[in-house]
Amino acid sequence: MNQFKGQTLSWELKDGVIELALHREPCNEIGSLTLEELEKFASAMERMQNQAHALILYSTMKSGFCAGADLRELYQGAQGMEKQGAARSVREFLERIHKVMNAIDSSPLTTIAALNGVTFGGGLELALVCDLIVADKMARFCFPELRLGLIPGFGGIPRLKRDLGNAVVRDLLLTGRSFNATKAQQVGLVSQVVGEGESLNAARGTAAQLGKFDRRTAIAAKKFIKPIPYEDLQQEIDIFCELFTQPAVEAGLKKFVESKDAQPYLP
């Protein structure tokens, strides 16, 4: 299936480049429907990768690339369940999304995240599976999970630790603050910062350049330089599920979901 149009995302293979577009209102929050469609994509990607050299992930939402997990769905799903049951259900979700993330992370394609606006939590974790990150100057990065009594659960900490210094991980994780694309480039997270609304064009230009190289060499280079931190990823799931049963999480999610505050995305 070289082309797909779903409710939360779409993809198309053209001229050796797969473009995966996220388009769920308001800001591509990742819930069960997005996960199902991401799983479909991961299967399709395996079939398409012999005809492609690059994958671009981007958002059609003006608000941003992705605001992270669908916290409303997470909160509502846990209501009426006993804590251990809710934790089991969360673990199942995490294991499924980790499979998708690992498939993109280890794909033989060269992968590019083309970012705009809000790239928070699970959205940042999705960007981090890509080999290159191109961001427009309005992109903003954050791991807000500690505000909810959690840690990032889609593989963000191990991947950020793999790609950047531990000090950057601690800053983002422990303060819960957000920073802009210029700062993200300074710390090595982003490879190119471009003008507002230009990240997809820049990613397409980069993908065209990648197509000039020998595929076998590019695949070998990626495999050599980008190990998948499987042990840390598994540990992250375990810690997340353990924390998920704590009262602070229910309180944090409730506060977010029921907030009438104009600033639920701010710390």
Partner: peptide, 20 residues
């Protein structure tokens, strides 16, 4: 504006004043 737009404003202010 809502919180997402407030973040947009924050980013624009950071760029304009060249501050974090």
């Amino acid at each position: 504006i809502d919180s997402l737009q407030a973040l947009d404003l924050l980013t624009r202010l950071e760029h304009h004043f060249n501050v974090e």
